[in-house]
């Protein structure tokens, strides 16, 4: 087991009150596997993964509770110095917007070499050579020349390749990619994911991939976690979640995806309604207000994550033995 997150609670203290961004999240990730995290905007995906590297700003952020075991060590108990040895070395991260994620006044090569000098004690010249090597690996053409250029001389797709190169420089155990392709053109998105997939095969790095796009998930992930309002509502192997989804929210997401293929313009409103306000999350299931199958108990009490089969877990009252039997609606209905 590479990563084991147990009952993680993260809040932000704002003027309006406490935003409970992550409210008891648990998941695991095995070595060499890809975990896709899917969910609507604002459901706490970025916050939950940034907590693994302790990158959320504290204050206003606060990690209220939980454990994050990385190779058996709880990263939440590490000192800042020890944490720095984890970042970029054992676990590294790629962010959503490659246009703003690189330092504009430093050459690409140096930004990559910096990780190597920091974690592997390399000399600058050697680190630069290695940086060029890695740039070649992520398919940046003319890497030797490009290494001496600045970020503004790179396109978005090329910058994201640089980010990937930087993240992989020290061969981390885990790569966290937070919507790595969302900010890019559709054509480049596909290239980027192919690249990630290829690298993952080659280097056997575990990946946590955050995405809005279930098509991407099917293509690359072995494990899936569906998040909603700071919680995991359904988790499991790709096949289990895709072919045997149990949560109405997952159904909704899938329905919106099949619609998306028909008509790209409708991707913005996949499920009717909006997620609950994390300032005052509801007592019961956060999805109840938008759920076609909501019962009274749904509004009163939060369902536990129940094992459906194997790795497959789902937090929904419909799985309770006393609940009415509801079957998944036809996918191509919508």
């Amino acid at each position: 087991m590479l990563l084991e997150v147990k009952d993680l609670h993260v809040s932000f203290h704002t003027y309006a009150g406490e935003v409970k961004a992550v409210r008891g999240l648990s998941y695991t990730l095995n070595k060499g596997e890809v975990l896709a995290v899917v969910g609507e905007s604002g459901c706490g995906k970025s916050v939950s993964v940034q907590t693994v590297l302790r990158l959320i700003p504290i204050p206003p952020g606060e990690i209220k509770k939980g454990e994050i075991l990385l190779n058996g060590r709880d990263v939440l108990k590490l000192s800042e110095k020890e944490m720095q040895k984890v970042r970029g070395n054992e676990v590294s991260m790629i962010f959503q917007d490659p246009m703003t994620s690189l330092n504009p006044t430093m050459t690409i090569g140096r930004q990559i070499a910096e990780v190597l000098t920091r974690h592997q004690g390399m000399r600058r010249v050697a680190a630069m050579e290695k940086a060029i090597e890695i740039l070649t690996l992520v398919e940046v053409p003319n890497a030797r020349e490009r290494a001496h250029q600045y970020p503004h001389e790179f396109s978005g797709g090329m910058r994201q390749r640089v980010m990937i190169a930087m993240a992989l420089a020290c061969s981390p155990d885990l790569l966290i990619a937070d919507e790595p392709s969302t900010a890019l053109d559709v054509t480049i998105q596909a290239q980027m994911l192919d690249l990630l997939k290829g690298l993952q095969k080659k280097l056997q790095t575990s990946i946590i991939l955050i995405t809005h796009d279930l098509g991407v998930v099917a293509n690359i992930a072995q494990q899936v976690m569906i998040m909603y309002a700071g919680l995991a509502v359904e988790t499991g192997d790709l096949r289990e979640v895709f072919y045997d989804a149990r949560h109405p929210y997952t159904w909704g997401l899938m329905k919106s995806m099949s619609r998306l293929d028909l008509n790209r313009k409708r991707r913005l409103t996949p499920i009717e309604g909006v997620p609950p306000d994390l300032l005052n999350p509801p007592e019961g299931c956060p999805f109840a207000d938008r759920c076609d199958y909501a019962m009274r108990v749904c509004r009163e009490e939060m369902p536990e994550l129940k094992i459906v089969s194997g790795n497959h877990g789902c937090a929904c009252w419909l799985l309770h033995e006393e609940a009415p039997k509801v079957s998944r609606p036809e996918l191509n209905g919508g």
Binding site: L53, L55, E80, Q84, K85, V86, R87, G88, N89, S92, M93, F95, D97, T100, S101, L102, N103, P104, M106, E114, V115, R118, H119, M163, M166
Partner: peptide, 21 residues
């Protein structure tokens, strides 16, 4: 800025993040 977050995520020391980035 995002690139400061990137610099932190690389595991650079506080000093380097401040001075260099």
């Amino acid at each position: 800025q995002d690139y400061i977050r990137t610099a932190k995520s690389k595991g650079l020391s506080y000093r380097t993040v401040v001075m260099r980035h």
